[in-house]
Design a protein around this nucleic acid. Sequence first.
RNA 1: CGGGGCGUAGCGCAGCUUGGUUAGCGCACCUGCCUUGGGCGCAGGGGGUCGGAGGUUCGAAUCCUCUCGCCCCGACCA
Length: 570
Amino acid sequence: MRYTKFFIPTLREVPSEAEAASHKFLLKAGYIRQLAAGLYIFLPLSWRVLNRINKILIEEMEAINAQEITMPILHPAEIWQTTGRWYEIKEEMFRLNDRGGREMCLGMTHEEIMTWLASREIRSYRELPQIWYQIQTKLRDEARPKSGILRTREFLMKDSYSFDMDVEGLDISYNLHAEAYHKIFKRCGLRFYQVESDPGMMGGACAHEYMAPSPAGEDDIAICANCGYIANVEIAQSFAQPVEYIESEMEELFTPDKRSIEEVAAFLNINPSCLIKSLLLVSSTYGYILALLRGDQELHDKKLTKIIGQFRIASKDEVISFLGVEPGFIGPIDFKGRIISDNALNEGVYVTGANKLNYHIKGVKPNINFTAEWHDIHIAKAGDYCPKCKSELKIEKAIEIGNIFKLGTKYSIPLNAVYLDGKGVEKPMIMGSYGIGPARIAAAVVEQNYDEEGIKWPKSIAPFDIQILPLNMSDKQTVELSEMLYKNISEIYNSLTDRNMDVLLDDRNVRPGVKFKDADLIGIPIQIIIGERSLKNNYIEVKKRLTQEVFKISLERAEASIVKIYYETE
RNA sequence: CGGGGCGUAGCGCAGCUUGGUUAGCGCACCUGCCUUGGGCGCAGGGGGUCGGAGGUUCGAAUCCUCUCGCCCCGACCA
């Protein structure tokens, strides 16, 4: 491809709204443009990247006998009503009416529609298992689109769905996907983890996410370097580090106006971990509940929801009316109701609110001075101990680039996706669903591979393999050599890749500095620099964008040298 | 949805507090000359309903009201 025939609108300055590195560079290097919040135009360069990613997706999906299909984006409401998600999902779903007033929605995912198809078309165990997938647009009215193409309202997704006879079959389909996903992310040049995750609204028993570590990520993952335990903080278990506690008899302490953990700890000159954090909650099923955490811990809402169901923090007035004291001085002693306490408090001696204005109590011993139900209800944090091997956990930010869910019968039962087994017994299909966002992969790759000059694509998904930079378009020898290399390298067939090299020839009549800057910005893995200075000495230069290494290669057999350097590149 | 910030040329910004000729600067863009190893140089030029609507005023980019949009933090995230 000739640069002058290809649309690459690079910018000198980045629009001020861009914050994340991938957002900045993809805008600056002319890959994307924003239409509105969470809506992006993919320009020729980024479309090439996406197509390369999609090609990898297709190859790896076909390798596990998944079959590509495509489904409508516009869905009738009835199917979503049948599974209940029409009602469970709130503003995230784009809804509309057709001309006849029929309720419709735009597809945010395709469990319903895929299951609808399976329910109509699959009759017998002889037709199972099936894995169907598509690469297709999803629409979600995100509360807060952000970070360029990392979180958008309309995005491409490779989503696949497996239908099996039984859970053993599901395990096989699930594991096939896990293996395929590992290969996909590896081929795309990503550093990633597979982590345990919360099945959430997808339902089902088991789920994993694929996480690309990056400061731009929205998720926190807990990692144990010792035993390999790794989980999204949304579900990560952990043990709080044990701390020293001060043995003492129970005694009221005057703590005037000291309400928060920090204030009390500072006032008493003790560590926050010596305090009990007491939170009065209101649960629709259990009424008032007291949740206890160690002073250095935070409540994990989802963990507690699993134990007591939906709840909310009691208001100040509710605290006063139920306990007769303001928040800031409440504690578990003589509490009339259910007490859920984090495991960290199971032993030790603590300071806690005295249920009396301006007083705390020291010397409080759990299981002696109060009783509680013991659970892990805290947010895992760096330094906590691994739930499996008790080594220290670290916390890393990461971008979710894919996920896999065991759905079981969550969709097949309501939508009546059943088959007859070998004995003629009707059974629900056992399902799984599996998603990957190609644009997220691209963005995550950029987040993991850039420097101050621009993007550094791995060659597997770069928009081009090689960029040729003739530095002076007025110099005859420069132009002739560039044209020759452009033609020859483009056509070199290599059985290792079953495709020709994609070469971008920067044939613009601009100064060398512009070409260098744009080339580094765009981030094609190999640059071939052709300038008069080196031609005088019978060589040209080949630069690897990843490492910025420059190789001087002889004009003799230059193509072979270039191809060799290309294959040695990541 | 809560909190914060920002809307002036394609991009980056100044001007607004304290209203007053024709709204400015840099980059980009167009023309010509020049130059060719890290976003050259010189000269000339085009491009703006100052996000929108209403109001105050002799006069509004500037003050007031409403509204739309975008970004960031949080909540949410199938």
